[in-house]
Amino acid sequence: MQTEKLITPIAHAFPVGSVAWGVINGMQVVTRFVGSDEEEARKEFLGIADASFLGKFGVKGRNAAQWLQDQGIVVPEQPNSWAGNADGSLVLRLGGSEFLIENAPGGNLCEKLLKADAKPAGVYLVPHVEASFVLSGNAVQELFAEVCSIDLTRAALGVQEVVMTQFAGVSVVLMHQDLEGEARYRVWCDSSYGPYLWEVMAGIANEHSGGPIGIGNYFSAYK
């Protein structure tokens, strides 16, 4: 009998063989798609990586913001905006009183929050198992223009803005982050649409001389 192990929700979209699999944060993921030189080159044009293994934690309710603050979490003030914690984890305010927190690479904030003391009244946990992606490269705006109807250029997008829209017909949450000296975009979608959205975006990336790359290209913790 096989040991129980999580597998990335995008698994169906990955080719059999040819790619290197590994386990990150207890989840089976593809760690390398092609040779590292070629992945470097892809990243310049349009890189797309699977970050679904990063731990997520959701909370909502009228006292959710206060409770998060009590745990020492930075809380974004405006709905549809995000903030970064000192350890590199992300806090997305998805509405007036709903939050999504994602671990920093190698971090374990979400596990801590999950184990935190009993939640007071007006604080409700929301499970999150989205597929998530990292995108970057010179042609990333061309990709957005193909899959999305609204203007996502940096001029149109506020610095700390969280955008909820549709990519190729799939509802997504999108944000932009400057990290490790480059402009990166993060995309989350319902995990059941993960393989489809991956295929669409990876296909467009290929047309722009880019393509799928291992997460180690983005987060040095996974090199």
Partner: peptide, 10 residues
């Protein structure tokens, strides 16, 4: 009112 102007398909 929350997310701004979007295509009707959303």
């Amino acid at each position: 009112p929350v997310n701004g102007t979007r295509p009707l398909s959303e």
